[in-house]
Nucleic acid binder design. Structure first.
Lengths: 103, 103
DNA sequence: GACATATTTGCACAACTATGCAAATATAAG
DNA sequence: CTTATATTTGCATAGTTGTGCAAATATGTC
């Protein structure tokens, strides 16, 4: 993920830009241990298969990581990477241009 | 925009989660003065009407502000608000839970 | 093996979205 | 008023997306 690439950044934010997916992220955010899909189901009122698909989208964009744990699969937020990307964008936006008047 | 609401946050990121719209944001990011739509057209290879619509979406989510300037309309990034929202999300995600073991 | 639980996949479908083009509108200049 | 430039809107369309349900798969338990 290159924060300087609008395409890359858009792909990441697109994954986050859906209400149920964002709810999953918030749920994982508050959890201090990896959660399985069944547990995550509680935060958004949709079928388990839908949750599975949303988690897949989040995993593909590196938002979450998953691990098989017996017959369950646990998901955890990829906090570091996510925070890094969001801050990079914020920094980019905040940086006002100081070149006015010059050349 | 309430950063604690996954719905609100998703709506904002959805607006940003499209390649051409993100390109417009990056373009405005580098600009030190408000730009009109014609000028912004150059950064994404689509019809002017499409740019107009994308800018409308961004304006509706408060990402940009616009102002009529004669027959042109100029757009500027709403840097403060945008940075505030992105940082709020990053902070929320970064905050790992320190309650493990306690209770 | 049979059964139970968790997750994924195939399928269908409705809703939404990005797009281009042409027409409409807004505003300025002549 | 006519013309030129900038932006928006109406319409059609192709593609994408979120969803539920049922079936398939994976894994653990008996």
């Amino acid at each position: 993920m290159d924060p300087d690439s609008p395409q890359d950044m858009a792909a990441l934010l697109k994954a986050l830009g859906e209400a149920n997916r964002m709810s999953l992220v918030y749920e994982l955010c508050d959890a201090n241990t990896p959660q399985n899909a069944m547990c995550l189901c509680s935060c958004c009122d949709v079928d388990a298969s839908v949750v599975s698909r949303h988690l897949k989208v989040l995993a593909q964009e590196g938002v979450v990581t998953s691990e098989r744990k017996g017959r369950e699969k646990t998901y955890a937020l990829n906090r570091q990477e996510l925070v890094r990307s969001l801050r990079a964008l914020a920094d980019k936006i905040e940086r006002t241009c100081h070149d006015e008047g010059r050349m």
